[in-house]
Simulated assay, not measured.
Amino acid sequence: MSHSVEFSSLPFASHFKLGRIRLNSARTLNALSLDMIKTMQQQLQAWQDDPYIVAVLLEGEGEKAFCAGGNVVDVYRAIAEQGDQGAFSQHYFGHEYQLDQLIQEYRKPIICWGHGYVMGGGMGLFMGARYRLVMPSSRLAMPEIKIGLYPDVGASYFLNQLPEHFARFLALTAYQVNATDACELGLATHYICDEAYQELLDQLAAGTLEDNSHEHVAQHIERVLHGFTLSDDLPLLKPELIAHEKELEKLMSGDIVNIYHSFKHFDNDSPTLMAARHNFLKGSPLSACLILEQLNWGKGQSLAAVFERETILSVNISVHGDFCEGVRALLVDKDQAPIWQHHSVIEAAKQPLATFFNPPSMMAERPSYEAS
């Protein structure tokens, strides 16, 4: 068992158990390694058939993050240093997306404690949970454009549940969403205090259930969570995305070239919105084009279709896109100066993108997970 993930069980409604998964790599902000992904998948599958485990709590060690993303440096090293032509990339992303799909379709309620940074691969875990808890420390983001990737881990599905302008803005800018906006947008289900963790466990442990039916378990969880959302001690953060919705709707209209020109002239008093502008203009132009293409395709698609296509796109972009250069510049050499394949979005938009969505010859068919 990986020491980077801890599994335990806690009391739930007196006679039952709450399975607890704790990401235990605070030094890396709980970045997901392949070993962590596999062990979580195995444990969740085992608990799904355990009648005493009636719900699952997913959390991260340390004060800074639930999970700041996937361990993409391992993917980079396999391609750039070992020259494996994407074999590990297929293995890593394939298993990560199987875990995300398992969480999305899990037969028992999953509660995710989304404190601190919830980014990239962390969002894949978080968004699959039925109960998505945020707090004043929470910062939710899909920052892949900064490393030459694109919002994956099912984002083609869950971002498309938002109004189009918000989906595009979050996907293209690595903007960090606060707890209030997360709840307003439906990315989170409950807003509670950071300090409420132990009291939450105590209240989940208290009380009784007639049986372990999904309905009764969910009712107990929802009664407990409802009490925390009414707390007088809860500091309310000002919404920002909602407050600037009209500006963002205009900014995100049209094709990727229109958006590029709009960003070039965008000015706002908000430091976070201007940081988002910077992220877009300094991010991978190729990724920007692929992001909009993928979001447009993902509208109305099933989870299974999304994960299948994301696996193909992730392998292709890691081998042939800007991924290796982005990871090198931001996470390996840390010179913060990536040299992208294209100088601007206008140049990248002229390149045919279809090859990125075609299965590479080395790719075997992705094993699918079906909830039973």
Score class of each variant (00 low, 15 high):
Met1Gly: 10
Ser2Pro: 07
Ser2Phe: 05
His3Lys: 13
Val5Ile: 14
Val5Ala: 12
Leu10His: 15
Leu10Asn: 13
Leu10Phe: 15
Phe12Glu: 01
Ser14Asp: 13
Leu18Gln: 07
Ser25Gly: 13
Ala26Glu: 11
Ala26Gln: 13
Asn30Trp: 02
Ala31Phe: 08
Asp35Thr: 05
Asp35Leu: 04
Lys38His: 06
Thr39Ile: 12
Met40Asn: 03
Ala46Lys: 10
Gln48Ile: 02
Asp49Pro: 00
Tyr52Val: 08
Tyr52Gly: 06
Ala55Cys: 05
Leu58Gln: 11
Lys64Trp: 07
Asn71Asp: 10
Asn71Glu: 15
Val72Asn: 09
Val73Ile: 15
Asp74Asn: 14
Gly83Lys: 02
Gly83Glu: 02
Ser89Asp: 10
Ser89Leu: 08
Ser89Met: 03
Tyr92Phe: 15
Glu105Val: 09
Ile110Thr: 05
Ile111Leu: 14
Trp113Gly: 03
Met119Pro: 00
Met119Trp: 11
Gly120Ile: 03
Gly121Gln: 10
Ala129Glu: 04
Met135Tyr: 04
Ser138Leu: 09
Arg139His: 02
Leu140Val: 10
Ala141Trp: 03
Ile145Ser: 10
Ile147Thr: 15
Gly148Phe: 06
Pro151Ser: 11
Asp152Ser: 14
Val153Tyr: 09
Ala155Pro: 07
Ser156Gln: 14
Pro163Tyr: 00
Thr173Trp: 07
Thr173Ser: 12
Ala174Leu: 08
Gln176Pro: 08
Asn178Phe: 02
Ala179Glu: 01
Gly186Pro: 07
Glu195Tyr: 04
Gln198Gly: 03
Glu199Ile: 00
Leu201Ala: 05
Asp202Lys: 15
Thr208Tyr: 09
Asp211Ala: 11
His214Arg: 15
His220Asp: 03
His220Lys: 11
Glu222Gly: 06
Leu225Met: 11
Ser231Thr: 06
Leu234Met: 08
Glu240Pro: 06
Lys246Pro: 03
Lys246Gln: 15
Lys250Tyr: 14
Ser253Gln: 13
Tyr260Ser: 07
Ser262Met: 01
His265Leu: 11
Asp269Tyr: 08
Ala276Gly: 05
Arg277Asp: 01
His278Asn: 14
Lys282Cys: 14
Pro285Tyr: 13
Ser287Glu: 02
Ala288Trp: 05
Trp297Phe: 01
Lys299Phe: 00
Gly300Met: 09
Ala304Glu: 15
Ala304Cys: 06
Arg309Asn: 11
Thr311Phe: 06
Ser314Ala: 14
Ile317Gly: 00
Ile317Ala: 07
Phe323Gln: 09
Cys324Ala: 01
Val327Tyr: 11
Val327Cys: 10
Ala329Met: 05
Leu331Asp: 00
Asp333Trp: 02
Asp333His: 06
Gln336Asn: 11
Ala337His: 14
Ile339Phe: 11
Trp340Gly: 06
Gln341Arg: 13
His342Trp: 05
Glu347Asp: 15
Ala349Arg: 03
Pro352Asn: 12
Leu353Ala: 04
Leu353Trp: 05
Phe356Gln: 07
Met362Ser: 10
Met363Ala: 15
Ser372Glu: 08
